[in-house]
């Protein structure tokens, strides 16, 4: 069988391929958590290794009692196109969150708990930051069972070895 393939343009530079992404999740607003999850999952879909490091408020996204109640930030976000004063009214966050969740379901984007299961099944390694855990008085039992472990920042950097590894802060 002959395969007719268009001839690709000649490459002058040697390609440096992305092999591993390490994403630091520092906030637990719904939009930031989804951005991190989609990036981590998208990497796996391309055959790229990916890891998530949850620190500071980002820990809420893997805290069992909190992860189903994450909200969209309605204050201090000009792209919401509502006056900041209005965004601060009671119920606004809940309203914006419900609206966003509806839109995401239409696009087949899973809720946070299911997304975490997908990430784990896809081979994304998830880590919690030790210092932030101490600060928020969290124990390992408070966090999701799929967690790979608890790391210091140094441990995390030590995992970032190897050519083609990129770090992202969200």
């Amino acid at each position: 069988m002959e395969v007719l393939k268009p001839v690709p343009e000649e490459k002058t530079k040697k390609e440096a391929k992305l092999k591993k992404v390490m994403i630091i999740v520092s906030k637990a607003t719904l939009e930031n958590v989804y951005a991190s999850f989609i990036l981590a999952n998208g990497a796996r879909m391309e055959g790229i290794e990916s890891e998530l490091f949850f620190t500071f408020f980002g820990l809420e996204a893997i805290t069992k009692s909190k992860l189903e109640h994450l909200h969209v930030a309605t204050v201090g976000n000009p792209a919401m196109h509502i006056p900041t004063m209005l965004g601060g009214l009671p119920g606004m966050e809940a309203f914006a969150t419900t609206m966003m969740k509806k839109e995401m379901e239409k696009l087949d984007i899973p809720p946070v708990d299911e997304f975490l299961e997908i990430l784990s099944a896809s081979g994304v390694k998830m880590w919690a930051c030790k210092l932030a855990m101490d600060m928020f008085h969290l124990e390992k039992k408070d966090l999701i069972d799929d967690l790979e472990g608890v790391l210091t920042v140094g441990d995390f950097y030590n995992r970032a070895h190897g050519e083609g590894t990129h770090l992202m802060f969200i």
């Binding site: 796996r44 879909m45 391309e46 055959g47 087949d108 299911e114 997908i118 099944a121």
Partner: peptide, 29 residues
């Protein structure tokens, strides 16, 4: 029906872990 990893995982044919194991390095593609 546009395909997503989530849909394949819910298909009843295979779960996500098995999907990655059968087609390593980018299963959907």
């Amino acid at each position: 029906v546009p395909l997503t990893i989530r849909k394949v995982g819910k298909s009843g044919v295979i779960d996500i872990k098995e999907f990655y194991a059968l087609f390593p390095g980018g299963p959907l593609k």
